[in-house]
Design a protein around this nucleic acid. Structure first.
Lengths: 202, 202
DNA sequence: AATTTCAGTGTACACGTGTACGCTAGTTTT
DNA sequence: AAAACTAGCGTACACGTGTACACTGAAATT
C-alpha cells in the first residue's frame, strides 16, 4: 500500500493551504477569501474543495496551526542565538522583527483572527500565544530565579509588548523600524527591571 | 431658515450610524456588514444610503471617529476619579475595564480595524490611540518628572498593555475578570518601576 | 479480473451583493 | 406663486457566492 492516492490527496491539500496563505496580504484577510477563490488559485474546481475541508473555517483553523508551528520555529531560532551570547532581550526582539519581515502574512493572520468574529479562531490563536508565553515564563523562572507568579506576569507583558511591536512593524516604514525596535527593547527592560524589583520583595 | 430639512437629514444619518453600531457584536465585524443590511436596519431603502455616505468605508471611518470620542470620554472620567485620590494605576485599569463592559462593540471595532485590511482604517485607529498615548505621556512627564523620551516609552507600553487586557476581557468569563485586572495592574507597576529606575540614571 | 472507492469535474440553482437610473413629494430658494 | 433642489423610493441588472447533484476515471480492494 504505497498510497499513491493518499499521497496525491495530501499534495492537493497542501496546494489549498498554500493557495490560501498566498492570497493573504495587508489588504486581504482570511475571512475575505472565498472558497471559490482559494480553489481556483489551487487549480481546483470549486466543489473539489470539499474533498479536503468541509468549510473555509476548517481551512482557516489549519492555517492557524501552521502559523503556530512557524511561531515555534521562531522560538527555537531565538534560543539558538541566545546560546551564543549577547543581550537576551535584544536578540529576541531582533529575531522577532526578522520573523515579521519574512512571515508578515502569517503574523497578520494571527493578529486578525485573534480579534476576529469566530470564537473558535480566537481560541486557537490564543492557544498558540499561550504556548509562546509559557515557554518564556519557564525561561524567566529558571534564568532569573523569579517567583512563578511574577515570572508569568512578566512573560505575559513581554509577549504582549512584542506582538504589539510586530503589529506596528507591519505598517511602519523601513526607516522607522530601528527606532521601533529600540523602543521595544527599552520597554522590555522596564518590565524586566520592575519584575526583578518586585521579586526581591516577595 | 430653520433647516427642517437638514435636521431630518442629520437624524437619518444618525440612524445609519446607530444601525451600524447596533449590528456589531463579537461575531459580527464592521467589514462583514453590508450596505443593504445597515440601510434596512435604519429603515431606509438601500439606495438612500448614498445620500449620507458614498461608501461603507466612509461610514466606517465615521464610526472610528465616534469610537475615538468615546475613548476621550473615558480618559476624562478616569482623570476625575484620580483627582479624588487613590492609586492612579488601579483607578485607570478599573475605569478602563468598566469602559470595556459598557462599550464592548465600540472597542471591538477599534481592535479589529487596527489590524484590518484598510490602510485608512488602520491609520484612523492608530491616530486615536496616539492621542490616548500622548495624553498619558504628558501626565507621566508632569506627575513623575520623567524624561520626555522615557515618559513616552512608558506611556506607549502602558497603553499597549491596557488595550491588550481589554481585548482579553472581551472574551473572558466574569469570574476571571478580577484576576485579569490584577495582573494588568501588576504589569503596569512593573513598567512604572522600570521607567523610574531608568529615569534615575539619565 | 471484477468490484468498490473516491478525488476531481461541470452544470445548475437560489441568494445576497453594490449600484445605476428615473421618479416622487416635500422643502427651500427665487 | 413658480422654480429648483434633494432625501428617499422602487425597479433592474450583472456579478460572485456556497453548495447540491450526477458524473468520470483511476486507484484500491476483493
Amino acid at each position: 500500500m504505497s498510497g499513491i492516492r493518499a499521497q496525491q490527496k495530501e499534495k492537493t491539500r497542501r496546494q489549498l493551504i498554500d493557495a490560501a496563505l498566498g492570497q493573504l496580504s495587508s489588504e486581504r484577510s482570511f475571512s475575505s477569501l472565498s472558497l471559490r477563490e482559494v480553489a481556483k488559485e489551487a487549480g481546483l474546481a470549486p466543489t473539489s474543495f470539499y474533498r479536503h475541508f468541509s468549510d473555509m473555517d476548517e481551512l482557516g483553523l489549519t492555517l492557524v496551526d501552521e502559523a503556530g508551528l512557524t511561531l515555534r520555529q521562531l522560538m527555537r531560532q531565538a534560543r539558538q542565538r541566545i546560546e551564543k551570547g549577547g543581550s537576551v532581550i535584544q536578540i529576541s526582539v531582533v529575531t522577532f522583527m526578522e520573523f515579521i519581515e519574512n512571515n508578515g502574512n502569517i503574523f497578520r493572520l494571527l493578529l486578525r483572527e485573534r480579534s476576529g468574529t469566530s470564537a473558535a479562531f480566537r481560541a486557537a490563536v490564543n492557544r498558540e500565544v499561550r504556548y509562546f508565553t509559557m515557554e518564556l515564563c519557564d525561561y524567566l523562572q529558571q534564568a532569573n530565579k523569579l517567583d512563578t507568579k511574577i515570572a508569568y506576569i512578566q512573560a505575559d507583558a513581554a509577549v504582549t509588548i512584542v506582538f504589539s511591536a510586530g503589529s506596528d512593524a507591519l505598517d511602519a516604514e523601513t526607516k522607522d523600524l530601528e527606532e521601533l525596535a529600540q523602543r521595544t527593547i527599552q520597554q522590555l527592560r522596564f518590565i524586566a527591571r520592575g519584575a526583578a524589583e518586585f521579586n526581591g520583595r516577595r
